[in-house]
Simulated assay, not measured.
Amino acid sequence: MVQERSVIQDIETRPMRERVGISIKKEGFTPGYSVQEVIDEIKAMEDAGIQEVWVPQVGGIDTMTIFTAAALQTKRIRFNLGIVPIYTRHPLVLAQQVVAFDGIAPGRLRLGIGSSNQGLMGMYGIQIEKPLTYLKEFMGILRPVLETGQVDFEGKYLHAHYHWLDNRIVNVPLMISALGEKAFETAGEIADAALPWLAPVSYLHDTALPAIRKGAESRQRQAPPIIASVLVALSEDKPAVQREAFKQLVIYLDVPYFPRLFEAAGLPLGPNNEGMERLLNALVVQGSAAEVEQQLRQILSSELREINITHVPVVDEKKELAQLERIISNL
C-alpha cells in the first residue's frame, strides 16, 4: 500500500524535534478548563517550535471540534487525536469529521482510535464486547471510505454502504491504541501506528515491537511505528517527581488493562501499591534539562521512532513547560 509506506517513511526521515509531541490533557480532566485555553495552549506550543500536539477524546468536549478551531488559528502544528473511543460513534460519522478537518488543514491530522474501557463506556450505556473484532470492523469501514471515497461492508457488529457524492479522498494516517501483545499484533495488521499509554519503554522493545512485526508479516506489509508515550519531569527532586507522577497515574490503577500491562512489563503492583516507585522510575523521564534531553535522544535513536510526552509539573508548571519546549525544539 503506497499510503502505508509513505506514512512510515515520513516518520523515519523527520529530524528528532519533529518526532516529539506534547500531550494536552487538561481539557478532559480539569474542571473549568475552557476550550479557548486549550486552543491558546496549542498556539503557544506552535510559537515555541513544537511540531505536534496530542489531545485525547475524554470528558464532555469534542476534541475534533477543538482541533478544527485551533487549525484556523495556527499554520503548521500537527494535530494527533488519540484516542476516539470506537463505540461512541459510527465510523462513517468519524470519517465525515476527518474529511471536514482535512479540508481546513490538509495533512495536519493523525487520527487515533481504540476501544477505551468499560468504565468510560458505561456512561453511554454501552457494553464492550470483542473489542479487537469490533476495532477491525471499524477500520474496515473507516480506511476505505477515507482512501477511496466509498465502502460496502457487512460485519458482525458494523455495517456500511456509502459513497461520497464528490468522490472526496483524504490521506490521514490511522493509529490504534495498544497495550497487550494481541493489540500490537492487530496494529501491525491494519494500522499506520500503534499508540500505547503508560507502557514502559523496555516493554515496548521486548514485547510490543516483536508483536507488531508479527502482525505486519502476516499481512505482508511493513511494520508500522510504535509511538512511545512517556511522562517527563524536569526536576532532580526524585521524591517530588514520584509524588507528582503518581497523580498522573492513579486514575488508571482501577482500569484492569493497566495492572495487567504493568505485570506483563515485569513491574507488577502489590498490595498498597507496593512496587509503585519502581514502576514510576520506568515510566518517567526525569532529571536536569541535559539529562532529560539525553534520555529523549536515546529513545528516539532506538526502534521507537516517535514520542508523545505528558509533562509532569513539579514546582513551577509554566517555567518547566517552557524549558521542556526548548529541549524539544532543539533536538
Rank of each mutant, 00 (worst) to 15 (best):
Q3P: 07
R5H: 12
R5V: 15
E18Y: 06
V20G: 01
V20W: 01
I24V: 13
K26T: 11
G28A: 13
P31E: 10
Y33A: 05
Q36T: 12
E41V: 07
A44W: 08
A48E: 03
G49P: 00
Q51I: 03
G59F: 08
L81Y: 01
H90Q: 13
A95L: 08
A100C: 09
P106T: 08
R108P: 09
R108K: 09
Q118P: 08
Y124I: 07
K130S: 13
P131N: 10
T133V: 12
P144H: 07
V145L: 12
V145Y: 08
G155R: 01
K156N: 11
L158K: 00
H161R: 15
E181H: 11
A183M: 12
P196G: 04
L198D: 01
P200T: 08
S202I: 07
S202A: 14
D206C: 04
A216Y: 00
R219T: 07
Q222C: 10
Q222S: 12
A223I: 05
I227N: 05
S235N: 07
E236F: 04
K247R: 14
L249R: 00
L253W: 04
Y257S: 13
L261H: 01
G266C: 01
G266H: 03
P271K: 12
E274N: 11
G287H: 09
A289N: 11
I299D: 01
S302L: 11
T310H: 08
V312W: 00
D316I: 05
K319Y: 06
L321A: 07
A322I: 09
S329E: 02
N330M: 07
L331S: 03
